[in-house]
């Protein structure tokens, strides 16, 4: 097959889409052909939304979550909401984790987004995380509990252990989310590690 010229718009678009994580060349090409079949204006709408993304989103000046740019407001909707419990902060790795907590409807406190986790095998240390702003928030002594809601994997464990060590000198209660069996699971089919953690974190009924 003859080599396509570099300005070939199909190849060019596929190459750009393949830059997304988890999108390979085949999937990217499939998406391009879908766009070509889509109604007029679809591609333009998508392109416009993508271009507006960078300018229209910023980090909240308090919790570091990603939030839409609003006039005269540097905080996200959660931090700006006066009815939230400001004494409890849930610390999460990624902005999308905030959405998961909000969807549960169980938590009325505030968040702090680290934008990553300590990953020894990837060489990611604490310096790249939003830890300094977290310490700033604890400075006035108003916050009573910090709930470490990092993932239950090696990176999440390392991050939680590091924060617990760092915060040992600060008068704030530091807790971590319980680990164990998912709701609705059958014990017979649970993996050994989750079962062991569930047993470790058992509580009186």
């Amino acid at each position: 097959m003859a080599e396509a010229p570099p300005q070939d718009p199909i190849r060019r678009a596929a190459r750009q889409l393949a830059r997304f994580p988890g999108i390979g060349e085949k999937t990217a090409t499939r998406l391009v052909y879908w766009l070509l079949r889509a109604p007029q204006g679809t591609a333009a709408e998508m392109a416009e939304a993508l271009v507006a993304l960078k300018d229209g989103v910023r980090e909240c000046s308090v919790c570091c979550d990603l939030t839409a740019v609003r006039p005269n407001e540097t905080r996200c909707a959660v931090c700006a909401n006066g009815s939230r419990d400001t004494r409890t902060i849930v610390v999460v790795e990624h902005p999308q984790d905030v959405g998961a907590f909000e969807k549960s409807g169980e938590f009325r406190g505030l968040y702090h987004v680290l934008h990553g986790a300590i990953s020894p095998l990837d060489g990611v240390g604490p310096d790249t995380l939003r830890i300094r702003p977290l310490l700033e928030r604890l400075r006035d002594g108003h916050v009573q509990e910090l709930v470490l809601a990092t993932d239950p994997d090696v990176e999440g464990d390392a991050t939680a252990l590091y924060l617990a060590r760092l915060l040992a000198g600060i008068p704030v209660k530091v807790t971590r989310l319980a680990h164990g069996l998912p709701v609705g699971a059958e014990i017979e089919y649970a993996d050994a590690a989750s079962l062991a953690r569930a047993l470790e974190n058992r509580r009186p009924v």
Binding site: P120, G123, V124, G125, P126, L135, Y162, L166, G169, I170
Partner: peptide, 17 residues
């Protein structure tokens, strides 16, 4: 090993007070 830089950076990190 990438873990080396993390070990070194965490070893240097002071505790917050």
């Amino acid at each position: 090993p990438k873990a080396r830089s993390v070990i070194e950076s965490i070893g240097r990190a002071p505790r917050a007070t």
